[in-house]
Design a protein around this nucleic acid. Sequence first.
DNA 1: GCATTAACACGTA
DNA 2: TACGTGTTAATGC
Length: 224
Amino acid sequence: MISEEQFLTSVFWARELPPDEQERARRGITFRAIESGRYFIHRGDRIDNWIGVVSGLLRLGSITTSGKAVTYAGLPPSCWFGEGSLLKDEPRQYDVLALRRTQLALLNRATFFWLYENSVAFDRLLVRLINERLGQFIAQVEHDRTLDSAGRVARSLASLFNPVISPFMGTQIEISQEEIGLLAGVSRPVANRVLQELEKAGLLRSEGGTVTILKLEELRFYGE
DNA sequence: GCATTAACACGTA
DNA sequence: TACGTGTTAATGC
């Protein structure tokens, strides 16, 4: 079984559960590492876990029939995902790729459903997460259609630091300009130019593969 | 026009 | 050597 410390540092929602449910959740969690560039899930897979990102970075997306990679979201540390496929008992609709070496925490299906059936605290948590993600995706569609590339890059970065979805993020993330481009749907030269623009505006610092957020709120509304 | 791809030089782990 | 960054030239929508 994983240690108390591992549990509390990687499972942000645990503190919302009463002690007996925490203990049950802890017994249902295992860890797994995915190497950089490897797929964790392919479209069509069935999954048997609710999945939490402990460290690293995942990309949720798919490949179009013409072979183009489309990204729907970055999954940063402390973010949990996959509840939709578990609850609907359907195959995963999207690919999940590790952009760098990534450690995952896996809550097994039986425990997930036990909590779902028995824990009010857990259900509130799920509703809150799903609600927040819904809002995030709707906003993303809006931004894709209304904002220029600078605005899209700023929103994509800000969405990685959503405090409801990934509350342990702090202010820094290891992410290359190439990866930022993939998340925001722009090319690397554009990501490069926008990062310089945002840095000049004092909203973030970008250096050597890490981005430090200085003004998250302004980043979230950049370009409006 | 603006973005994209491809390519090059540079600095660093 | 491998990677990330900064930049430019050719090309496309």
